[in-house]
Lab assay of single mutants.
Amino acid sequence: HTVDVQGVTYHFDNPEEARKFAEEMAKRLGLQVHVKDGRYKVE
């Protein structure tokens, strides 16, 4: 499970961890979480 944050890619084994990380980063950076091709993108 992959999370892209402003061009940096993070990998997680656990989909729940990936989702939480994406939401946390989006909140911290004031950005949105998009799901695209099964990847989380924070932009």
Rank of each mutant, 00 (worst) to 15 (best):
N14G: 11
E16H: 11
E24D: 12
K27N: 08
T9W: 09
G38Q: 04
H1W: 11
T9D: 05
H11K: 11
A26Q: 01
E23T: 11
E16P: 05
N14T: 13
G38F: 04
A18Y: 00
V35M: 12
A18S: 05
V42L: 10
G7P: 01
D37W: 03
K20I: 12
F21L: 03
L29D: 02
A26W: 02
E23C: 15
K41C: 15
G7Q: 05
A26F: 02
E43W: 08
Q32C: 14
R19E: 06
N14M: 10
H1V: 08
V8A: 10
R39P: 02
H1F: 12
M25R: 06
D4M: 07
G7V: 02
V42F: 03
F12S: 00
D4T: 07
M25F: 07
E43P: 03
V8P: 00
D13H: 10
D13M: 10
D4L: 08
A26R: 02
F21Y: 07
T9G: 05
T9F: 12
E16Y: 11
N14D: 12
V42G: 02
K20L: 13
Q6T: 09
P15I: 08
K41E: 14
R39A: 15
K41W: 15
E23W: 15
F21R: 01
G38H: 05
Y40A: 04
E23N: 11
N14P: 02
K36V: 15
R39F: 10
M25K: 06
K27D: 08
E24K: 11
G30L: 04
E23Q: 11
E16M: 10
N14L: 10
F12Q: 00
K41V: 15
L31I: 04
Y40Q: 03
Q6W: 08
Q32V: 15
D4K: 05
Y10A: 03
V35Q: 07
E24V: 10
Y40M: 07
H11F: 13
L29G: 02
G38S: 04
Q32T: 14
H34Q: 10
E24F: 14
V5N: 02
F12A: 01
P15E: 14
A22H: 00
R28W: 07
E23H: 15
Y10Q: 02
E17P: 05
R28Y: 08
P15A: 12
V5Q: 01
G30Y: 04
K36S: 13
A18G: 04
E23V: 13
K20Y: 11
H11M: 13
H1M: 12
Q32A: 13
A18D: 00
R28L: 13
K41R: 13
L29C: 07
V42H: 02
E43N: 07
E17K: 10
H11L: 12
F21D: 00
T2H: 14
F21W: 07
K36Q: 13
K36T: 12
H1I: 09
E43L: 07
V5G: 03
V33H: 02
E16F: 11
L31S: 04
V5R: 01
F12R: 01
M25T: 11
V35Y: 15
M25A: 10
A22C: 05
H11A: 10
F21H: 03
R39Q: 15
A18Q: 04
Q32M: 10
P15H: 12
Q32H: 14
E16L: 11
V35C: 14
L29P: 01
G30P: 00
K27G: 07
Q32P: 06
H34I: 14
A18C: 08
R19P: 02
Y10M: 04
G7E: 05
D4E: 14
H34V: 14
R39D: 15
A18T: 04
Q6G: 08
Y40K: 03
N14I: 08
F21I: 02
F21G: 01
Q6V: 14
F21S: 01
E43C: 15
A22P: 00
V8F: 12
V5L: 08
D37K: 05
D37L: 04
Y40T: 05
H34F: 14
R19K: 10
N14H: 12
Q6K: 09
V5H: 04
G30K: 06
F12C: 07
G38W: 03
R28N: 07
H34E: 07
Y10C: 06
E23D: 09
H11Q: 11
Q32E: 09
A22T: 01
G38E: 04
E24I: 11
H1Y: 13
R28P: 02
K27Y: 10
M25L: 06
V33D: 00
Q6E: 11
P15F: 06
Q6L: 15
A18R: 02
M25N: 06
R28F: 08
R19Y: 08
T2V: 15
G7K: 05
E16N: 11
V33I: 07
D13I: 10
V8T: 12
V3M: 01
V33M: 06
T9C: 14
E17V: 09
V3Q: 00
V35N: 05
F12K: 02
M25G: 03
Y10F: 11
T9K: 07
D37E: 06
L31E: 02
T2P: 14
P15T: 12
H1D: 07
D4G: 05
M25H: 06
G30F: 05
A26C: 04
P15K: 13
E43D: 13
R19Q: 08
V3S: 01
D13A: 11
T2A: 14
V33W: 09
V5A: 06
E17M: 11
G7Y: 05
D4I: 07
A22K: 00
T9A: 09
E24W: 13
K36P: 01
E23R: 08
Y10L: 04
A26N: 01
F21A: 03
K20P: 02
G7N: 07
K27I: 09
G38D: 06
H11S: 12
R28E: 08
V8S: 09
Q6Y: 09
D4P: 01
N14Y: 10
A26L: 01
E24M: 14
H1Q: 09
G30C: 12
V5S: 04
P15L: 08
V35T: 06
V3I: 02
V35P: 02
L31T: 04
D13R: 09
H1G: 12
G7R: 05
